[in-house]
Structures are given as structure tokens and as C-alpha cells.
């Protein structure tokens, strides 16, 4: 750990509200510790802005250890910045050479409208899960956990998919702003586990219908999502989603269509 500091030029997207027009603003940052995380550098910027009586930059963040999925910055042309397998909060300033100009923008996707500055509304992800990302089991009905035997390989595969933190980097990275990696991670986790199998037929099509209705794009298998995923979730889950979807759409003895979930009025903040 070193006390070395560096200076940077920041180009940050500022947008006062969802309907306001945004623009890139330039800030000079002096004496940033190389050991600081990217978000700590933003804390420093905000303290600086506050000291000058200016509005601090709004950005989402919470756990700062790479698991809550809240942080969401598009840094120098890539979600969560230049390193792979990490979130913005795990990115450190030593990654950026002294004097570098750093662009910071919000996730850009129609279903992720900007709320303010770098903060976007990711409610669409919640609604996709609500469309079927669960096993329908009530509290208290479960049999003994060891009565469902799950081979280690299957449990590991489910865990690989379940590692998704719902940050939205996949959407941000995808040139089509597709949410397929996110949808497939949940579909895949529950499709390989016996607990989730009985509902897997409906799950895939309902979650996909919700994704489509939110306005995400279609997958063109560029692999950008998986490359930028902080949890390095594999494209094989998308293949499984495709498979589940195809099979169920053509074999399920039911033609009733899922009605996409609407954003509730009480969450309509004008974004």
C-alpha cells in the first residue's frame, strides 16, 4: 500500500433529472491516492463539489465489495472499467496512469432510464424476476433438504449462474442492450436444479416475454456481456435459455400467453 497520488481529468455525464438534457462535464482531480477505489475517487470529487457549493454527482453504490450489484459506471468505454471480473467498487485508481482522462457515463439502455447523473432505474430487472425467477414454494412446506439429492456438478453449475449480482453490466456492454445474460442466469440456475424443474417450462417464456416488453434488445451472441460480467457468467446459460424457450414454446400444452408486468404507479417517478 503506497501513499502515492495521481491527478486525473474526469469527463462525467451530468443530467439533473430524467427529463433533463445531459452533458459531459469536465473535472480536474488532484492528489488521488493510487490505493483508492474508483468510487472513493468519486467520494473525493463529491466532497470537492460540495465544498464549492455545487451539486455532487449522483451515482449508485452500496456494499463496496462487489456483491450488491448497485454500482454501475461505464468507465472509459467499458462497464465497470478496464479490468475484468470486477465491479466499479473493486476498481482501483492504480489501474489508471497519472494524468489520464477518464470518461464516466451511466448505463445506456432504453429500459434503464437515467434518474440523475450516473444513476439509472433498473426496475426492469426486478420485474423480469417477478415474471418467473423463483420456485413456487411457500414458507414452511419444505421437505428435508437432503431428500433432494443434487450431484455436485449440477450444484456447481447452478451456483455459477446464481452468482449474478443483477448490476446490468451485460445490458450496458451489449450493443443491442439485451438482457439475455441476466435472464438466462436465473433461468439456467433454476432449470438445472430439480427444485426448479417443474416450473421451468413457464419460467423461460414468461421471463423472456417480460424482457421483451421492457424494451431490451435481442441477443446476437457477441459475447460482450459475458466478457464484462463481474461474475464472469458464461454464454452457455444463454444457450440453455434458448433451448428451454424453444422446447417449451413448441411442446407445452398451453396457449395462454403471459401478460407482462407493468411498472406500478407508485414507482412511477416520472422516469
Amino acid at each position: 500500500m503506497s501513499a502515492e497520488t495521481r491527478n486525473y481529468t474526469l469527463k462525467v455525464w451530468r443530467q439533473s433529472g430524467s427529463s433533463a438534457k445531459g452533458e459531459i462535464k469536465t473535472y480536474e482531480m488532484k492528489n488521488v491516492s493510487v490505493g483508492a477505489s474508483f468510487l472513493e475517487m468519486f467520494d473525493q470529487l463529491n466532497e470537492q463539489l460540495l465544498a464549492n457549493g455545487e451539486d455532487p454527482v449522483a451515482f449508485d453504490h452500496d456494499c463496496r465489495e462487489g456483491i450488491c450489484g448497485m454500482c454501475s459506471m461505464y468507465i472509459n468505454g467499458r462497464p465497470h472499467g478496464p479490468d475484468t471480473g470486477i465491479t466499479t467498487c473493486q476498481l482501483h485508481m492504480r489501474t489508471f496512469p497519472d494524468g489520464e482522462t477518464i470518461y464516466v457515463e451511466p448505463w445506456r439502455a432504453k429500459p434503464f432510464p437515467v434518474i440523475k447523473d450516473l444513476t439509472v432505474d433498473r426496475g426492469a430487472f426486478d420485474r423480469i424476476i417477478q415474471a418467473g425467477g423463483y420456485v413456487s414454494v411457500n414458507t414452511g412446506n419444505a421437505q428435508d433438504a437432503n431428500e433432494i439429492l443434487i450431484p455436485k456438478a449440477i450444484a456447481d453449475e447452478a451456483m455459477d449462474a446464481a452468482a449474478c449480482i443483477g448490476c446490468g453490466a451485460c445490458v450496458a456492454a451489449c450493443k443491442n442492450a439485451s438482457a439475455m445474460l441476466f435472464v438466462s442466469a436465473k433461468v439456467s440456475q433454476l432449470a438445472v436444479l430439480p427444485q426448479g424443474k417443474s416450473e421451468s417450462s413457464r419460467r423461460a417464456q414468461n421471463m423472456l416475454a417480460q424482457m421483451d416488453s421492457e424494451g431490451f434488445g435481442a441477443c446476437t451472441n457477441t459475447g460482450a456481456c459475458s466478457s464484462e460480467c463481474p461474475k464472469e457468467i458464461s454464454l452457455t446459460h444463454i444457450a440453455r435459455l434458448n433451448r428451454e424457450y424453444l422446447r417449451n414454446r413448441f411442446t407445452l400444452n398451453d396457449v395462454e400467453e403471459f401478460q407482462p408486468i407493468k411498472k406500478p404507479d407508485y414507482l412511477d417517478f416520472g422516469v
Binding site: V135, V137, L149, P151, A155, A158
Partner: peptide, 20 residues
Amino acid sequence: NIIDQCAAQGVPFAREYGGT
């Protein structure tokens, strides 16, 4: 009960090779 409940929900707990 918690372990049973969570396993039923599809929480991918670590498993032995035999599936337990």
C-alpha cells in the same frame, strides 16, 4: 427449517459428490 426452506427455493448450497 431454514436450510430446508432455502434448499427448496433453489439456493445452490455446496454439495458433496453424492448430492447431499
